[in-house]
Amino acid sequence: MKWNPAKYVQFASHRDRPFFELTQRIDIEAPRKVVDLGCGPGPLTAALAERWPDAQVTGLDASAEMIEKAATEHLRPNLAFAETDATTWTPEPGTDVLVSNAMLQWIPGHRELMAGWLDALEPGAWFAAQVPGNFGAPSHALMRELAGRPHWKARLEGLALRKDATAEPETYLRLLLDHGFDADVWETTYSQILRGQDPVLEWVRGTGLRPILSVLGEQDAREFEDEYAELVREAYPPFTGSEGEQLTVFPFRRIFMVGRKGPTG
């Protein structure tokens, strides 16, 4: 599945905020190695390199398109990017900070992967991740419903559009505690204001719709988007703001987890 870096950063102000609210909880002054796993097009990884100028900061992503954009646009002496499959990756010795921002939901069985990473990290290391918690929201429920209708079901057979792509906060809290981490886990629902025509469709084009669009031809993809847009207009009705601009409220729940490995973890 190919990613479009330009589409992904279309809503950067909304997508970036959880990253900074997550990473501000990492309380370490001078890490040696910092890894951003699932770094995307790189601006947030660059922020980590700026925060810790003496650390070796590496952004990893499975998308060649994302890594190409990141390596081209974000050049710092202490920053590097590489294409990596997270399902086969293990933290190197000396990794003091491991960040994963809005990536784990794409990996079935990611909690087992997390367990391996947590075990591999050394005492004193930090782990920080955030994942969407909105897979039961209309934006995703309507997508699954539409994909299951007779007209689309055969063409999308076998495509994983899971309601359980992420777990609840307590599950992540227990996972961190069980692997020797002092943990802080919380959730936030952002009441995001989106602007313009069909903004929920525009939002999910950069993320949730990618698996569907990647297997449909151009004409079918447009037809699916048109049907989906009609459904989400009803679920997220637009209204006119004080200056005549069309606005849509798009609630978005996110789950955050941060932990520091104890001396006997």
Rank of each mutant, 00 (worst) to 15 (best):
Q197G: 03
L44M: 15
T88D: 08
P53K: 14
S100E: 08
A82P: 00
L231N: 08
T248E: 01
D220R: 07
D96A: 14
P123W: 14
A147F: 06
G133K: 00
T166Y: 02
V131L: 10
I67F: 11
F252K: 02
V185L: 02
G208W: 04
E227H: 08
L113R: 13
K163I: 00
W203G: 05
E225L: 12
F181R: 01
V35A: 10
W117S: 14
D182K: 11
L98T: 06
V34E: 09
R149T: 15
L146A: 11
G206Y: 03
L98Y: 03
P263M: 12
G38R: 09
A147W: 03
P53T: 13
A80I: 02
A6F: 09
R260T: 10
A115C: 04
M257G: 12
A128Y: 06
R32M: 03
F181Q: 01
A120N: 11
S214D: 15
A12L: 10
W89Y: 04
S139Q: 06
F20I: 02
A30Y: 02
L201G: 10
A141T: 05
C39Y: 10
P150L: 13
T45Y: 11
E145I: 02
P5C: 14
A147S: 11
M66R: 11
F252W: 13
R222E: 14
R174W: 00
M257V: 14
Q56S: 12
K69D: 09
L159E: 04
V34D: 13
P199T: 15
R155G: 12
P150K: 14
L175K: 04
D36L: 10
G244D: 10
F127T: 05
L177T: 11
E68W: 03
L156Y: 10
A154D: 15
A221T: 11
D54Q: 13
M66V: 07
L247T: 08
H179R: 07
